[in-house]
Nucleic acid binder design. Structure first.
Lengths: 145, 145
DNA sequence: CTATCACCTTCGTGTTACACGAAGTCAATC
DNA sequence: GATTGACTTCGTGTAACACGAAGGTGATAG
C-alpha cells in the first residue's frame, strides 16, 4: 500500500495531480485508512499509469472518467472501450510522427548553429531554419536590414 | 502575402493562435497594411512553423519570445541560441521515446480488447493493462467483486 | 446607393488541468 | 507537550488559448 507521495514518485506524476485524479474518481481502486489517508495498491498505481498515458495522448479528464466508468460497468462495454482505445491509438501514432519531425527539425537547427560556431559557414544566414519540409520555404537570409 | 486565415491553414494553427502569437511579438517579420490587417510573408510563415515546433516540445511562450529576441539581436547571440536549441532537442528526444511507449501501450490495450471480442480469451481479466513495463505489475483480474 | 458578404479588428470573459499556499488534523517522536 | 512531518480540505492563481460580441473595411450584387 502506497501513500500519495509514493504513488507520485512511482508514476512520475506530481502529488497534486495524483490527488486531483483520485478526487475526480479516476482511480476506482484507491482506498482510505482510518485517518482518511489515500492508500494506493498496485492496481491503483496501474490506473495512474493508464491515466497518464491517456492524458498524454490528448484525452480530456472528463473522457478518461467516462472510460473508467465503462470499465466499472463490466464486460458489456468492451466494444465501446475497444473503439475508444483504437481511436486514441491512432492519435498516438500521429503524435509519434509529429515528435519525429520535431526532433528532425531541432537537430537541423542545432547543426546549423554548430556550423556557424565552427566557422564552417560565413554568416548567420537563415537563423530560423523553420519549415524545412515546405516546398516554398525560403533559403535566403531571414533578417534583412 | 497571406492573411491570418491563410497563415492558419498553412501552418495548422488556429486563427486565434496566429493572432495570439503575433500580438505577443513572436513573429517579427509580420506587417500590417493600411487597414491594419496582418500580412504574413514566407518568412513569417516559417516563424509560425518554428513557434509551433518549440511550443509542442514544451517551450513556454515567454521563452519563445526570449529566443526570438535573441535572433533579432544578431550573430552575437548564436552561442546562447545553440545551447537553447540543444536543450530542447534533448527534450524532443525524450518526448519521442514517451510517444513510442504510449503507442505500444495503446496497441497492447486494443489487442487485449480485440482478443476478448473474438472470444480468444474467456473473460475480462485485467481490463486495464496499464503499467506493462513495470516489473511488479499485477497480472490478475483488476476488478474484484 | 445600399445592402450583403466575408473578412478583419479589439475587447473581455470562459476553460482545462492542474499549481500553489493557507490552515487545519493527526500520529509519532523527542 | 511541543515539534515534526505528512496528510487533509479549501480556495484562488496560471497558461495558452477558445470563444463570442460588437464593430470597422472593402468588394461585389442588385
Amino acid at each position: 500500500m502506497h501513500t500519495v507521495k509514493e504513488a507520485a514518485l512511482m508514476t512520475g506524476l506530481t502529488e497534486h495531480a495524483v490527488r486531483f485524479y483520485t478526487d475526480k474518481g479516476l482511480v476506482p481502486s484507491v482506498q482510505r485508512n482510518k485517518n482518511n489517508i489515500r492508500l494506493f495498491d498496485e492496481e491503483s498505481i496501474n490506473w495512474l499509469y493508464g491515466i497518464k498515458c491517456l492524458k498524454q495522448t490528448g484525452m480530456q479528464i472528463e473522457n478518461i472518467k467516462t472510460y473508467v466508468d465503462l470499465c466499472l460497468e463490466g464486460d458489456s462495454t468492451v466494444p465501446q472501450r475497444f473503439a475508444l482505445m483504437k481511436e486514441y491509438k491512432e492519435m498516438a501514432l500521429v503524435q509519434l510522427e509529429e515528435a519525429k519531425q520535431r526532433v528532425a527539425h531541432l537537430e537541423e537547427t542545432t547543426h546549423h548553429y554548430q556550423a556557424i560556431l565552427e566557422n564552417r559557414i560565413p554568416d548567420t544566414t537563415n537563423p530560423n531554419k523553420w519549415g524545412i519540409d515546405r516546398k516554398d520555404a525560403r533559403s535566403g537570409p531571414v533578417f534583412r536590414k
